[in-house]
Simulated scan of single mutants.
Amino acid sequence: MHVVAFPQAPFYSAPGHAHMVMQRLQGMEAGPSDSVWIGCSLIEPGGGTTSGASDVEKFYICLEGELQVTASDGSKTQVTVLRPMDSCRIAPQEARQLFNAGSSPARVLLVMPNRI
């Protein structure tokens, strides 16, 4: 078993992310993992990500607050708001943008494959 206490979860940064505090809960520099890594982000009001796609799928689970997710596969664009315990899957090559349009912070869990 590999345990990471939340206060000791390593912080990380990523390009195109603004007004966010991001921590890795498992995988990568947080410890061993054969398949995925898990991150937790606190997104301040007005914060979020630029639009971008990657070669791997991503799963987002809203834990607190509300988070607007815009996804585009090139032929259609979908906008949704995730509320606590709502989740979404972003497919490989599907562009996604996260944005906190609310007045309070949003906390979101990210699960994605180890390969980037």
Rank of each mutant, 00 (worst) to 15 (best):
M28H: 07
K58L: 05
I43P: 03
Q97W: 02
S33N: 10
A91W: 04
L63D: 02
A14K: 14
S75Y: 05
G48F: 08
S13Q: 15
R115Q: 13
S13N: 11
G65S: 06
V36P: 00
G48P: 04
L109M: 15
H19M: 13
I90W: 01
S54F: 03
R89V: 15
H17K: 14
L109I: 13
F59A: 09
E44W: 05
T70V: 14
D73P: 08
Y60N: 04
I61E: 01
L63F: 01
G74R: 12
S104D: 11
H17Y: 03
T80F: 05
M112E: 15
A18Q: 09
E29C: 10
E44C: 05
S75C: 09
M28D: 08
A95I: 03
G47L: 07
E57L: 13
G102I: 03
I43Y: 02
V69G: 00
M22N: 12
Q26M: 12
Q78N: 08
Q68D: 11
R115F: 06
P84F: 08
P45K: 06
D34Q: 10
A53C: 11
A9H: 01
Q78Y: 02
D55T: 13
A30G: 08
L82C: 10
A95D: 09
T77R: 09
V21S: 09
R89E: 04
C62P: 06
G31I: 03
E29N: 15
N114R: 11
M20S: 06
F11M: 14
Y60H: 10
G65Y: 02
G102F: 02
S13L: 09
V21K: 06
E94K: 05
H19K: 15
A18I: 13
S75H: 12
S54L: 12
T50W: 00
P45L: 06
Q26D: 00
I43S: 05
S104Q: 14
V3P: 02
A14W: 06
A91R: 14
L110G: 08
M28Y: 01
P15Y: 03
S87F: 10
P32S: 09
V4A: 04
I43T: 11
D55W: 00
Q93I: 01
E66M: 12
S35D: 12
V111H: 02
M28R: 10
A14H: 11
V81W: 00
S51D: 03
V3N: 06
F11N: 07
V21P: 00
M1T: 12
S103D: 14
A18Y: 13
F59N: 02
V36S: 00
G27Y: 03
T49I: 08
Y60F: 15
T70E: 11
G16A: 03
K76S: 13
G65A: 09
V111M: 13
E57M: 11
L110V: 14
L67P: 08
T80M: 15
C40H: 07
W37H: 11
Q93V: 05
V108F: 01
A95H: 10
S35Q: 09
A18G: 02
M20Y: 01
L82D: 03
I116P: 06
S72Y: 00
L110P: 07
